[in-house]
Design a protein around this nucleic acid. Sequence first.
DNA 1: CGTTTGGTTGAAATGTGTCAAACTTTGTGG
DNA 2: CCACAAAGTTTGACACATTTCAACCAAACG
Lengths: 249, 249
Amino acid sequence: MTVDKASQRLIRQLSTIANLTDESKKLLADMPKQVVDFGQGEKIAWDGDRPTKSFIIVDGFAVSSKTTTEGNRQILAYFMPGDVPDLQSLHLPALDVTVSTIRPCKVAFVQHTVLQEICERHPAIAKVLWRWTLIAGSIHREWVTSVGRRRSSARIAHLMCEVISRMRALGLAQGNSCEMAMTQLELADATGMSAVHVNRSVQALRRANLITLRGTTLTVLDWEGLKSFGEFDPAYLHLLAPSAEAQGS
Amino acid sequence: MTVDKASQRLIRQLSTIANLTDESKKLLADMPKQVVDFGQGEKIAWDGDRPTKSFIIVDGFAVSSKTTTEGNRQILAYFMPGDVPDLQSLHLPALDVTVSTIRPCKVAFVQHTVLQEICERHPAIAKVLWRWTLIAGSIHREWVTSVGRRRSSARIAHLMCEVISRMRALGLAQGNSCEMAMTQLELADATGMSAVHVNRSVQALRRANLITLRGTTLTVLDWEGLKSFGEFDPAYLHLLAPSAEAQGS
DNA sequence: CGTTTGGTTGAAATGTGTCAAACTTTGTGG
DNA sequence: CCACAAAGTTTGACACATTTCAACCAAACG
């Protein structure tokens, strides 16, 4: 039995936070999905929308964001393959963020009715999805802390630790390297800084021999150093295997 | 049939975000609860705990927060009567925040086993609770935006709008006034600013004739003005009756 | 009535943003 | 495969928002 890529990604993501039974996996894999391609910088869902389906990121990277009246953008979450950026719309009809690709993306749409029926008939799956949305909330809390109370370069370091930890858990990191997929401008919008200051903070991390950042490829040179510099404690990610983050250095 | 205060508060809160059937209300009211009093500035639950019960705020106010290694505190959420600050621990065993009272609090503990059984047997209630945790996430996103991208006095204004809107929805605001229960130091920790700067920002809001803040009692003099100054759009609260926020001015 | 807690003020230090220009890399079409 | 354009990065100078420190004041409290 072959399983499509969208299902593989979704199942792999969920496996990082919960143990799925084979039955659950099959149910998720069998959901009807509609695959659509998006280019870089395209919007997939808009603040204020009332979607009737949610989507899985199959390939590529996306972010959710809000824009203030003065036109400043704040990135609120970072999505990688297997993520479902608008899962909350299952129980919150009106979307409160805009989701945009930061890389070309292949996404798979699933009707809310399908998800809802699965949740009703299979409470175990509902529980995992609920847990997933709670982890998204936990990550939000860590971001508030970062943006509110950490120095600029620690914010950057923390975000890098988060991304590489999540990528590792998915098996999408190569050793100490991963495709971060964010320009410095996007890094700025995610950390509440200006692009110029991000640049200077990144240089500080480089000078401290903590990282290498070429284009959008991040390499961690000193995992323990970066962790302590960014005050990163992976507990908030609530991953099943904390070992995933200890493989570094 | 008399219903205890803890249940009343809980049901009133949930009624602001969902329509509960009488059966659901009865089930919630019938949960065994253990009422405990806490003084001001006490901690109810600790970061890293693995609680076996969650608690409803019956009276008083509380916040959840994280503290950085440098000792800076970031407040992440603000809880009022009827709120369940650690509801997420139902599916995230390890708590990732500390919950402390900012006023003397009466709280009612409910065993997780009880909540879990209700959720299993009554999917309608599970759905409401899930929705509730999703709204908490939505509020977190708004806070990230505020802390990351809004000017200092707009942050304060935004937080004031949020608190008074939620208090109004609960019927806990008197006209344009409400008990905000936060000192300027707590306001600082919630908005990622220093206490001194909060003081200056509050004064700016006063000078603009938007608010009055005596002690911890907030009075809104110009609701529309405060809303636009703080870029406040209540959509992210996902309240059932948006009218609650339109009653002002 | 003194003590504590929270609020207010001023001055100086500093982190971060803004602006503008130059540079580098990446991608694309000829 | 080169040349060019576009996108992203880096740099410097300067402005300014915010923090820090320290002192003082006001209100609440036992």
